[in-house]
Amino acid sequence: MALISVRNFLKCGHSLADSIIFNSRSIVVSSNRNNTVAPSEKKPDTDAGKSEINPEIESLNKQIIELASQKDELLDKYKRALADGENLRNRLTKQISEAKIYGIQSFCKDLLDVADVLNKATETVPKEELNKNSHLKSLYEGLTMTEAQLMSVFKRHGLEQVNPIDEKFNPNFHEALFTQDVKDKESGTVVIVSKIGYKLHERVVRPALVGVAK
């Protein structure tokens, strides 16, 4: 059995805390050290880090929710603004179109008095005197041609006469002055036109003044 001194044993890096077992053939060193990690080698405590991160995540989530809400609100306002702009554009387009069509309405209305005078003048000329008086005949023909030319101009610009004789009374285009009993006429039928009406592109400029059967 080989002997080894304690001094030499310590020189080999062993401490007294190690167990030394002697037998006839060898010396066995058994370490009694615990398999624990040194304090400096311990894993960091993550609980404290988690407690610090959680408030930050909650704050970020809150900001994300607020930004999403703001985004939805701005998107809704944007869509509403687009819709309002489109509605405004449509209204302006319609107004411009109507202004082009009905811009001459007041001018046409003023000319209706001229048409009424011409019509009255041609109606009052006695037809039996035309062949007897050449001057009267020429005047009548001139008035008739002027009236026809004026009606042609009216029609070219969309102004048309409303002469509803024997038609059903329509309050949108006619104005009833009186009613009377008329045989063989259905109730509500226009039997007399006291004054011819006019419409400009389906818009009434002047309603026809009529008498209606009871």
Rank of each mutant, 00 (worst) to 15 (best):
A2C: 07
A2R: 13
L3E: 14
I4N: 05
S5W: 00
R7F: 07
L10P: 04
K11D: 14
C12I: 12
C12L: 15
G13W: 06
H14C: 11
S15T: 13
L16W: 07
A17T: 11
D18V: 03
S19P: 04
I20A: 04
I21Q: 09
F22R: 14
N23R: 08
S24F: 09
R25K: 14
V28Q: 14
V28A: 14
R33V: 11
N35D: 14
V37E: 04
A38R: 08
E41G: 08
E41H: 08
K43Y: 11
K43Q: 12
K43P: 15
D45S: 05
D45I: 06
D47I: 10
D47R: 15
G49S: 15
G49L: 14
G49Q: 15
I53Y: 10
I53K: 13
E58G: 07
L60H: 03
N61T: 06
Q63M: 07
I64K: 07
I65A: 06
E66P: 05
L67S: 09
L67I: 08
A81C: 08
L82W: 03
L82V: 07
G85H: 02
N87Q: 12
R89P: 00
N90L: 00
L92W: 01
K94W: 07
I96Y: 04
S97A: 08
I101L: 04
I101A: 01
Y102S: 04
G103H: 00
D110E: 13
L112W: 02
D116Y: 07
N119K: 07
N119E: 10
A121L: 05
T122L: 07
T124S: 12
T124Q: 12
P126K: 02
K127A: 10
E129R: 09
N131E: 15
N133G: 03
S134L: 09
S134M: 10
L136I: 01
K137I: 09
K137W: 10
S138C: 02
L139P: 06
L139M: 10
Y140F: 15
Y140M: 12
T144N: 13
T144Q: 14
M145G: 11
M145E: 14
T146N: 10
E147V: 09
L150M: 15
L150I: 11
V153C: 07
K155C: 06
K155P: 06
R156Q: 15
Q161P: 09
Q161A: 15
V162W: 04
N163G: 09
N163V: 13
P164T: 00
D166N: 15
E167T: 11
K168C: 05
P171L: 03
P171E: 07
N172H: 13
F173D: 03
H174C: 05
H174K: 03
L177V: 12
L177T: 11
Q180P: 06
V182Q: 02
D184H: 13
D184R: 11
K185D: 03
E186C: 04
S187C: 05
G188I: 00
V190E: 08
V191N: 06
S194A: 15
I196C: 00
K199T: 00
L200M: 01
L200C: 01
E202S: 13
R203I: 04
V204Y: 01
P207I: 04
A208Y: 00
G211C: 01
V212Y: 02
A213M: 07
